[in-house]
Write a protein that binds this DNA or RNA. Structure first.
Lengths: 230, 230
DNA sequence: CTTACTTTGTGAATGATTTCACAAAGTACC
DNA sequence: GGTACTTTGTGAAATCATTCACAAAGTAAG
């Protein structure tokens, strides 16, 4: 049973810039769930089940996938292996993504050693720090850590796809400038400060304390039922 | 100069559940910028400038703030000190938020020692780990780390507002269950897995690798202008 | 005190995203 | 092979968020 679906419009010629940012994020989520399903030996999955697991609407799941082609089989659902392969191909995590980390302090070293940050398909080439020796001690990792002064020389010709920034706030713009000058066109910024870059460079932010602070707002609302007007 | 603004409808009676999630997140951003302005001794700020610094639209800034009252002065802008105080009061970061951390592995210990995670107004009471001794070595921190078996007894009566989860994926639901049972109504989950909790409990997710994976999608689009159709 | 200027606060317009709902397509079983 | 059932893919509708644009309100300076 479970014949491979005959019909699959692979890689429809859709402008990548037309796809909403949010769709791409959810694709990463799908990829993750599919991986765990594959690991568990589950072979088929419906949009409804996928949606349930992620707290989404099933139509949304179908629409997201429909942006890139027809991967499903009506009356059946999606073949887990197949869909996963497709999603990884879309996200380009089926080829090697070459990553560097700048700033190997508390946060940076955690990112380096935390399995779960670098997924399959991503390779950390090396780290940079103003104090590579101390940084090397922190990061329990085989990834070499160089002096940040050698940034340009070390990464030239290495085909770096993405730079992860975890440096102090006051130097993040300067570090970003240097990285951009080296031809890196994607930056993942863990530093809670907006950086200015040329339009061709993609920047994403991860703000560790933002959600915490937001949560505080909702906490107070709950902690007492009746609000008294001061 | 710079008289304190006479008019300020403080804490308009707006249902906290009516405020969009995104507004609250931006409020945290405003709070952060305002803090740095205050530090620099800057006393006035316009919605336009605030927007520029955060890559937003000035009308959006004004609308966000307008959800909670009238804090601005037409023809002048906002008083930095004043606005900051207001925003912190809205977010309730002007009082102590009591936080615990469950899971003091690579990520958890980084969160503990990373200045920049716990902002002003948040206090880390203690951490929990299956191996508190090893965890204590990792976390260079004065925060006590207890055995996770003692979770219930240690946090009872401590008035814990928020629990931060950084445990392995396969135990996160169980840990969440225990935490909820202890009466904690807000969870910040760093574990990339959706947890089921009662409706009264607020859960927020921080996914460290999601943005990285999304970035990959955009990287490939840039790296070669002409796409060849296989 | 009056005038010219700036910037807020906000209804209306636009744009984006999510959900609904259903025809079309494929499955599964007899 | 045929029939009943399931689930996809997708326009249309609904919801949510952002931006525009301007009257109202306050500042600043003579």
């Amino acid at each position: 049973m479970a014949k491979r679906p005959a019909k699959q419009t692979p890689q429809q010629p859709i402008d990548p810039d037309r796809i909403p940012r949010a769709v791409i994020k959810r694709l990463s989520l799908y990829s993750r769930i599919l991986q765990s399903f594959e690991f568990q030996g589950i072979e088929k999955i419906s949009s409804a089940e996928l949606a349930r697991r992620l707290g989404l609407n099933s139509a949304q799941v179908r629409k997201d996938l429909a942006c890139f082609g027809q991967f499903g089989v009506p009356g059946f659902g999606y073949h887990v292996n197949d869909l996963r392969r497709q999603v990884r191909s879309i996200l380009k995590t089926d080829r090697e993504m070459r990553v560097i980390l700048v700033g190997v302090g508390n946060l940076g070293s955690a990112l380096m050693s935390y399995r779960g940050f670098l997924k399959q398909g991503f390779t950390m080439l090396f780290g940079f720090d103003v104090n590579p020796r101390a940084a090397g001690d922190r990061a329990r990792s085989k990834v070499p850590i160089y002096d940040i002064r050698d940034l340009e020389s070390k990464i030239s010709g290495q085909g770096v796809d993405i730079a992860v920034l975890a440096v102090p706030t006051d130097v993040v713009q300067e570090v970003a400038n240097r990285i951009v000058k080296c031809g890196v066109n994607a930056i993942l910024n863990f530093v809670p400060m907006r950086i200015e870059v040329p339009a061709r460079v993609q920047v994403r932010y991860v703000d560790l304390s933002l959600e915490l602070e937001s949560l505080a707002y909702y906490v107070q609302g709950r902690e007492k039922e009746g609000e008294k007007s001061d």
